[in-house]
């Protein structure tokens, strides 16, 4: 990795935005290296969408400097626009056109030429499994299909930097996995992805770096591993049939907290396979009978609780 040589795909310093007296972004600094996935994690109302809107030239910041693909968003917005693709939270498709027409429209606006535009449209329809419905108006499509078309439209011009604003919100698990695979494929091709999400799991699976946004401020920034180290709350819950077994286990794991009423022991752990195996080995070695076992990994609530001191009460409100 030559992280020092390549200029960042996205660079923001001191980003501010207010609507009236409501401060939405209160001094944000971001550096996204080229060819990586960067996740902006936060609850509803944290300022994620506003950040994407500013970085993608949709709205202007009140203060701060932003460069995307080496172009200043204020002085050279068209330079930025030529390099980026945006898939927002609300379907940016033309519902009155067919799927194919939507893609050809994008190709025309990217000035790809008639033949190349049609070729690219056909290729993307196939890639996103939309061939069957391609000739039907998008208004008759399901929400998941519209989402896939939305992303396909973003990819028409082969943008080098792609913004995905909550790309999997409201998707079923299968579509979510498809979306994740698309993101991984894009990064393998050297594309930079800036995504926002409410799900720690999603950021963890996709992103090289995660920034946690809360009330317009970045409260943490780092690799998923770094971030998880900041977050207590992950543990393995061991349940026992009787008090004797539990006492033995409690001596084995002095750091564990006990729940005498339900004969359970909470052993701090990151919940990974390695940690589990070693835990089971220790139990086996000490000949302790365990009645039940469950793993609890840290989630966004834990992140927010530990980083901000308040729970993410708004999660799932939208």
């Amino acid at each position: 990795m030559s992280a020092t040589a390549a200029p960042p795909a996205i660079h923001a310093a001191g980003l501010r935005k207010s609507y009236g007296t409501q401060v939405v972004l209160d001094g944000i600094d971001l550096d996204v290296p080229e060819g990586t996935v960067y996740a902006l994690l936060g609850p509803n109302g944290a300022g994620k969408t506003t950040t994407v809107h500013i970085l993608s030239t949709l709205i202007a910041a009140d203060g701060g400097r932003v460069e995307v693909a080496g172009h200043d968003v204020d002085r050279d917005p068209d330079g930025v626009r030529a390099a980026i693709g945006v898939t927002g939270q609300f379907s940016a498709v033309d519902r009155f056109l067919t799927g194919e027409e939507n893609l050809v429209l994008m190709a025309d606006l990217r000035h790809l030429g008639r033949a190349e535009g049609r070729r690219r449209a056909a290729e993307l329809l196939a890639r996103f499994d939309l061939v069957e419905a391609a000739r039907n108006p998008v208004s008759t499509w399901s929400g998941g299909m519209q989402r896939r078309l939305d992303l396909a439209m973003t990819l028409v011009g082969d943008p080098r930097i792609i913004f995905l604003d909550e790309p999997t919100a409201g998707l079923d698990p299968r579509s979510r996995r498809t979306m994740w695979q698309v993101v991984r494929d894009l990064v393998n091709d050297g594309v930079t992805i800036f995504l926002t999400t409410q799900y720690l799991e999603e950021a963890d699976r996709l992103a090289g770096r995660i920034a946690v946004l809360d009330h317009g401020r970045l409260v943490a920034e780092g690799t998923p591993a770094e971030l998880k180290r900041l977050v207590p709350g992950g543990h393995v819950r061991l349940e026992f049939a009787d008090n004797g077994e539990m006492e033995k286990a409690a001596r084995l794991f002095p750091g564990a907290s006990r729940d005498d009423e339900s004969l359970a022991l909470l052993v701090p752990s990151d919940g990974g396979v390695g940690a589990l195996r070693s835990l089971l080995d220790q139990l086996e070695h000490a000949s302790i009978d365990v009645d039940g076992l469950s793993v609890r990994t840290p989630d966004l609530d834990d992140v927010f609780l530990s980083l901000t001191g308040h729970a993410d009460t708004e999660k799932g409100a939208a």
Binding site: A82, S91, V93, D94
Partner: peptide, 13 residues
């Protein structure tokens, strides 16, 4: 009110 107009705004057109 359509999302596509927001998309147009982020494109170099």
């Amino acid at each position: 009110t359509e999302g596509i107009v927001a998309r147009f705004r982020t494109m170099a057109i």
